[in-house]
Amino acid sequence: MTRVLVVEDDPIIGEMLTLYLTEENFDVQRVETAREGKLALGIYNPDILLLDLMLPDANGTELCAEFRQLTAVPIIVISMKPSVTVRIQAISNGADDFLVKPFSMQELKVRMEAVLRRATSLSPAAKPAKALHAHGEAMPDIDQGLSLDLERRTIVLNGEHIETTFSEYEIMKLFFHHPNRVFSREELINAVRGIDSFINDRAIDVHVTNLRRKLEKNPKEPQYIKTVWGVGYKFMNP
């Protein structure tokens, strides 16, 4: 049974989420503060996190970054703020999706299932838990170059593990499987979020910028992720 951690202080919304998701065969635990949420991550070990951005002890999109540092599970933000700026900030800080209150419970379920599918697509049971070259062959000795560690869901650069957000890793996974192929921003949006989820061109650009900062010696002259002007991006592994 999928475990859902709900961090929501509004008693009405919190109860609605708990009742609906329980009826849909999810295992649900709800807490009301950021502190309780962080403690529950280790104790409850959720598969997905529903996070309100306005809590009694913390608020703002920085909450996404704080929770992302503690867990790699998908995070869906549920917020009263409809601002596009807030949405982009939340996604850039590690959220995997964003829903504005009030929202359809059925839509929430569909989005949860979408991010969970992507989160489990590279589970160790499904694929070998080894680092890969860009073309997919296993690497017995990772000292130089860029590769993926499927078990830890990290990028390995010259033997060093580079931590990424869920979405950054999904973008790199797509690039690795299709080196030298040019991807439009729309293709990257659909691959990372799913067609029904919120994200836009600007958010993709932010993810690529963050990846370049983590991977490139000179992000302004990238060697791995190239911009194809007027189209999108492509990955090259020198």
Rank of each mutant, 00 (worst) to 15 (best):
R3P: 03
R3H: 12
L5F: 10
D9G: 07
I12E: 12
G14H: 12
M16W: 02
M16N: 14
L17V: 09
L19D: 13
L19N: 13
Y20Q: 04
L21C: 03
T22Q: 08
F26V: 03
F26M: 04
V31N: 06
V31T: 07
K38W: 11
A40W: 04
L41R: 00
L41F: 00
L41W: 00
G42Y: 02
Y44D: 06
L50V: 07
L51H: 02
L51G: 00
L53Q: 03
P56Q: 05
D57K: 11
A58H: 02
N59C: 12
G60N: 05
G60E: 01
G60I: 01
T61G: 05
L63W: 00
E66R: 00
E66D: 12
F67D: 01
R68E: 05
P74T: 01
I75L: 15
I76S: 08
V77S: 05
S79D: 01
K81W: 03
K81M: 11
V84D: 15
V86H: 09
R87W: 10
Q89P: 03
A90D: 01
A90K: 01
S92T: 08
N93E: 10
A95C: 09
A95H: 07
D96N: 14
F98I: 08
L99I: 07
P102Y: 06
F103G: 06
S104V: 04
M105W: 11
Q106F: 00
E107V: 13
E107L: 15
L108S: 09
L108H: 06
E113C: 08
A114L: 05
L116C: 03
R117E: 06
R118C: 08
R118F: 08
P124C: 07
K127S: 13
A129F: 04
A131R: 06
L132Y: 00
H133K: 15
E137V: 08
A138M: 10
M139W: 04
P140C: 03
D141K: 11
I142T: 14
G145N: 10
L146I: 15
L148N: 02
D149T: 09
T154E: 03
T154I: 09
T154P: 05
I155A: 03
N158F: 00
G159M: 09
E163S: 15
S167K: 04
I171Q: 02
F176M: 14
F176N: 13
P179W: 11
N180H: 13
L188K: 10
N190E: 14
N190P: 03
V192R: 07
R193H: 15
I195V: 12
S197H: 04
S197W: 00
N200Q: 03
D201R: 13
R202C: 11
A203W: 03
D205W: 12
V206I: 14
T209E: 14
L211W: 13
R212M: 08
R213M: 15
K220N: 11
K220I: 09
V228T: 07
V228A: 02
G230N: 08
G230P: 02
V231E: 13
V231N: 05
Y233A: 05
Y233P: 11
Y233L: 09
Y233R: 12
F235C: 12
N237S: 13
